Amino acid sequence: MKRNLLKFFLIFLGLAALAACGGGAPQISGIAAVANFETTACVKAEKTIQIRNNDSEEPQRVQGVHFEFGTNDFDKDGNRPETLVEGETYFQFFKVEEVTVGNVVKQAVGNMVTEMIMPPGGVMTVKVSYNPKVITKGEAYHNTYLDVVLNGPKLGVMQIELRGKAPTALEGCGTTQGDLKKFRVDKVTIKIEDKDAEVPVQETTDITETFQFGVEGDKALIGKADFPSIPIDTPQGAVSADLEDETFEGTFDGAKLEFPAVRLSVLGQITVEGKLTTESVEVTAPDGTLSATGSALADGKMKLVFGSTLPQNGLLQQLQGGAIVAEIELSETN
Rank of each mutant, 00 (worst) to 15 (best):
T284N: 10
P26G: 14
G300Y: 03
L276V: 06
V104D: 11
A16M: 13
R61N: 15
G274Y: 09
P26V: 13
V305P: 13
N111S: 02
A32R: 05
K44R: 15
P286A: 05
G322A: 07
T83L: 13
T136R: 10
A17C: 14
R263L: 07
T175K: 11
T176M: 02
V128G: 03
T83D: 14
E332T: 04
S265Q: 05
G223M: 15
T100E: 14
K301R: 10
V128T: 02
L310H: 01
E97M: 08
A261N: 10
L10G: 11
I328E: 03
K256Q: 12
P132F: 05
C173E: 03
G14K: 06
L297Q: 03
G307F: 06
V149M: 06
L13M: 06
T293V: 10
T71K: 09
G223Q: 14
T247M: 14
E244M: 14
I230P: 01
L276T: 04
F211W: 08
I230F: 03
N143D: 13
M112S: 14
G268I: 00
T136N: 11
G254H: 00
A285Y: 07
Q177E: 15
G152D: 13
V266E: 03
L316H: 01
M302I: 00
A20R: 09
G156Q: 08
E139K: 13
P200K: 09
V62W: 01
N54C: 07
G274N: 10
L146W: 02
F9L: 12
L155S: 12
E115D: 12
E244H: 05
F93I: 02
S331Q: 06
V123F: 07
G214N: 01
Y90I: 03
D194W: 04
N143S: 12
S280L: 11
E246L: 11
E329S: 07
G121M: 10
K165F: 07
A292T: 07
L304E: 12
L297T: 03
A296R: 05
E273Q: 12
G102Y: 01
R80M: 11
K127V: 12
V123T: 15
M302P: 04
G174M: 00
T125W: 02
S295N: 09
A220Y: 05
I49N: 02
